[in-house]
Design a protein around this nucleic acid. Structure first.
Lengths: 170, 170, 170, 170
DNA sequence: TTTT
DNA sequence: TTTT
C-alpha cells in the first residue's frame, strides 16, 4: 500500500553499458546511467544553451536481466519508476546520499540496442528490431564504440548486495 | 489554474500521416492517430494475445506545425497532453462524443524526423521497421507488420475550425 | 508486454457514487465519473473561464471493490490507468465508441470523501485524515498518523542564490 | 527544446513549512521536503513494513511564492517537475551531490493545509475547500465551489458483463 | 508485490 | 558518459 505517489518517467540515452550484478539470492540488479537534456536560448546572450541531466537507474530481478541483455551504451529507453535515496559511507567515513530511480517498467525505444552481436536466443520481451526506422537501402553496421572508461563523479559504491531485500516493495 | 490533474502520456506509432488544418486565425491544428499495443498470454488458451489501442491526438499552434512537418505514418513519438471529450453531430442528427488527447508536449523518438526533407523513397511497408523483432546478426525479413493503418471506425468530423478558441488553456 | 506507453494520470472529484457490478466470474467492475477542471482568463473578454472535463473511469477486480467501498460522490482521488476505447451499440443500432480510463492504481486524497459527515473537531496533527480509511457516514477515529515530519538527514546547504540563472528553462 | 523526458510526479505531505528565499533578481525560490511512503507485508516475517521516502522539492518564481504562501507543514500536495542533481561543497571541501525535484506544477490537495485552524463549519458541498485558496490561520469563505457533480451527457450503457475477459492485461 |  |  502506498500513501502518496512517487513516480518518475524518463526517456533518455544510456551513458554506458549496463552493469549487472547478482544478489546472493540469485536475483539480478542492473545499474545504468541515463541522460536527458534540455536546450534553450539564453535570454541575455541569445546563445543556445544546453544542460544534460544524468540519472542513476536501477533495475531488479527480471527487469534487471532484460536491461542487462538488451540495453547498451547509447540505447534510447523509456523508464518508469520511483525515487529512492540511498545512504552509503564515503571513504572518509562520512554519510553520503545518492538518489536513484528504481525502475518498475522499461521499454526500449530503438532497435539497435547498441549491441553489434545481436541475439543468439529468442527475444523474451518481444523487443528487438526497431520500429519507425527507414527500411530502404542497406542495413548498416552496428557502430557501438568501444566501452568508454568512465569516472563517475563521486562514485557511490555499488549497493551492498547482502543488504538487499527481495521484498523491496515495487 | 487547474483544479485537478488531467494528464496523458503516450508512446506509440502514427497510424497515418498527420492531417494539418488551419484556423481562420491562421493557427494550425494537426490530427494524428497513435497506436499503442499490449500483448499477453491468455491464461486459458495459452495463446499469445494482442490488443492495439488507437488514440486520437490533436496538436495546436506551434506544436501542430512541428507535428505536421516532422511526423509521418509509422513515426514513433512521445506525446504528453490532456484528455478532452468533444461533442459533435452524427449525420443522423444525434449527438456523438469523441475523446482526444490534446497534446502539450511532443517528442520524436526515431531519428528520421527532425529533417523536413522527409523520405525521398517511399517506405514500402508504409511504416518503417516494426518493433518486437529479434535482432540477430543477419537482417531478416519483416515478420510482424506494425499496427496496420486502418480506417478509424466512426470517423468524427474534423472539429469546426471556427469553434476553436485561441485561448484554449494549454 | 507492451509496445508503447498508454498512461493516464488523473486527480479529480467523483461526480457520483461508484457503481459496482459483478461479472459472472464473481469479479467486480466499478464505474465512476471523475471531474477535472481548468480555469483561465479569456484574452479578449478578460473574463474568467472555466471548463470541466468528465472522465469515465473503470476499476476491475480488487481495485473495483476498494473503489466501491471507499469512494463516494465528491471524493477527491488519484487515478492512474490506461486509455481504452470501447465499442457499443446505440438504440438505433449504430456503433458508438466510448473512451474510458482503465484504472491500475487508485489513491484516495481526502479522508472525508464526499460525505457531508466530515470533521467535527480540529485536526490536532495539522494533517487531516489519513488516506485509505473508510469514509462511511460515521467519521471514525484516526488510526494511522500521516508521515511524521522529521529532520532530514544530511541537509545540504540552500543553493547559492547568486548561482541561479533566471533563464532556467521551465 | 528537450531531448529526452525528465518527469517526476509526486503526491505527498510536507515535512515542514516551506522555506522561501529571494534571489538578487527578486525572484523567489522555495524549498520543501515531501514525504511519500509505502507499506507492504514482508514475505518472511509476515510483518507489516513501512518505508518513507523524503523528496527535496524546489519551486521558482511565481510558483515559489504560491508554495510559500499556501503550503504548510503537513500539507498534502501534488507536484510535477523534473529531476536535477546539484553539486555543492561539504564542509570538508569535498564535492557532494543532491538530487532535487524542480517543480513545474503544484496543486494543493487539501483545503485545510497543514494549518490546524482548518474549518470551523462543516463543508456544505461535501467537498472541502477548493484548491488554490489561501489557507492562513484565518479560514475564509469558500468562493469557488468544487466542480459540481452533474449528469453525464450521453450515458453509454454499462459494459456487457459477459463480454469482459478476466485476462484483461493490467 | 502489497495495500486501501 | 548519452543523444541530436
Amino acid at each position: 500500500m502506498a500513501r502518496g505517489i512517487n513516480k518518475v518517467i524518463l526517456v533518455g540515452n544510456l551513458g554506458g553499458d549496463p552493469e549487472v550484478r547478482y544478489m546472493p539470492s540469485g536475483n539480478a540488479v542492473t545499474n545504468v546511467t541515463l541522460a536527458t537534456s534540455e536546450s534553450w536560448k539564453d535570454r541575455q546572450s541569445g546563445q543556445q544553451q544546453e544542460r544534460t541531466e544524468w540519472h542513476r537507474v536501477v533495475f531488479f530481478n527480471r527487469l534487471a536481466e532484460i536491461a542487462g541483455e538488451y540495453l547498451r551504451k547509447g540505447s534510447k529507453v523509456y523508464v518508469e519508476g520511483s525515487l529512492r535515496t540511498r545512504k552509503w559511507q564515503g571513504q572518509d567515513g562520512q554519510d553520503r546520499y545518492t538518489t536513484e530511480i528504481v525502475a518498475s517498467e522499461m521499454q526500449m525505444l530503438d532497435g539497435r540496442g547498441g549491441d553489434s552481436g545481436g541475439y543468439s536466443q529468442p527475444d523474451p520481451m518481444g523487443y528487438g528490431q526497431p520500429q519507425g526506422q527507414p527500411q530502404g537501402g542497406q542495413p548498416r553496421q552496428q557502430q557501438r564504440p568501444a566501452p568508454a572508461p568512465q569516472q563517475q563523479p563521486q562514485q557511490p559504491p555499488a549497493p551492498d548486495m547482502d543488504s538487499f531485500d527481495d521484498d523491496i516493495p515495487f
